[in-house]
Nucleic acid binder design. Sequence first.
DNA 1: GCAATAATAAAACGAACGTTCAATTAATTC
DNA 2: GAATTAATTGAACGTTCGTTTTATTATTGC
Lengths: 216, 216
Amino acid sequence: MARTTGSDGEKTEATIREAAVNLIARLGYEAMSMRQLASEVGVQAAALYRYFPTKEELLFTLMREHMEGLTDAWEAARPVSADPAQRLSAYVRNHIAFHIERRHATHVSNMELRSLSPERLTQILRMRTAYEKELRAILRDGDETGAFSIDDTGLTAMALIQMMTGVIVWFRPGERLSIAEVTATYLSMTMRLVGAKIDAYSAARPFGRAKDAAAF
Amino acid sequence: MARTTGSDGEKTEATIREAAVNLIARLGYEAMSMRQLASEVGVQAAALYRYFPTKEELLFTLMREHMEGLTDAWEAARPVSADPAQRLSAYVRNHIAFHIERRHATHVSNMELRSLSPERLTQILRMRTAYEKELRAILRDGDETGAFSIDDTGLTAMALIQMMTGVIVWFRPGERLSIAEVTATYLSMTMRLVGAKIDAYSAARPFGRAKDAAAF
DNA sequence: GCAATAATAAAACGAACGTTCAATTAATTC
DNA sequence: GAATTAATTGAACGTTCGTTTTATTATTGC
């Protein structure tokens, strides 16, 4: 047999991406075989190579697009305001919303870095560093203007990122807490962590992502 | 050839463990081959099976002993005091010190859980949950006695664990910050995060691990 | 120094891996 | 409706994997 009735390249590629993210998140990149992925897609292993030249290129594509999505989401959510508390609030909201929405892709991007070639690893890390730099800038501004009180901006930025991204480890939709409740609690913890002088995150709420604002 | 001059079972097993932790941390469990591990140890692959019946059993042993070590360290460091701030301070100190000391083993225990069989996974997770339960108890006590001000104890415990364990992702010994400086900053962030009423972590310092106390 | 045992090497096992290639069929173009 | 292009199959390639088996040598206890 060969080409199957109703087969469509675009649709197949999308199915491959989706199945790959889920499989890699569940089994790990090394543990997932191309045959397993193909079977999940409903296709023979050879067909995958029409869309991705190698297994690693597939992984890299998933990661790169995840990071691009994160950067784009922040570009869209970044407030015009110069107030550090409002900017930090927007950053936290965006980060948590994005990572909860894409738990599996985040897992892949965080756990499978070591399976990339050095050049590709560098490329992904550069994107990540650029994204984290935004947070450091907010913290520094807030510290300098007196809105925050921070011991070490770099260290605090890393601690916040780890804390926020950690949500995907334990959060399961539909359990005890809603996304809105989790976000509110993390926002409160963040503001206390950076020593925000006033309860600024409440005032900043209208500047959060439009999508989430309705939840409050 | 067969038995080599000067070969010693105990020494070989210790070397295997050490090499395995480092290799798995660097390459990942699935990506590390038994032949690669054997070569690192300076032995043929077949020799490994005298000490560990399967690759997975080797992984499980590394993880179990890591978790036992963490529990034991906390048993030794746990203060007699009932003061929540002092207990939290001791928990943070112990957690960070232990994880920085054993960065590679922590990496393995956190990243390779999915390579365990269901029964072994359950066993490791049980140990982890028991350890985290201690933190939740401290937070609850502190919240109830008014020493802390916490929105959600369970969520705060997870956030703190993620934040603290995250140290191993970016911390490298001998760089900008010393272990003592990192610990102090994390302690300060933790106390603000839980809304500790006073600067209690300073008063609690004498109750930290004896080993670290000298650093202050 | 001789028997028993501990530690390892060397070779082989079948299975699974990522990937390639040629053949074949469905859809599209003219 | 014939020619072209897109999508996929099925089989095969060489390699590597975890593991087992058997033989061999070093060490230990008597």
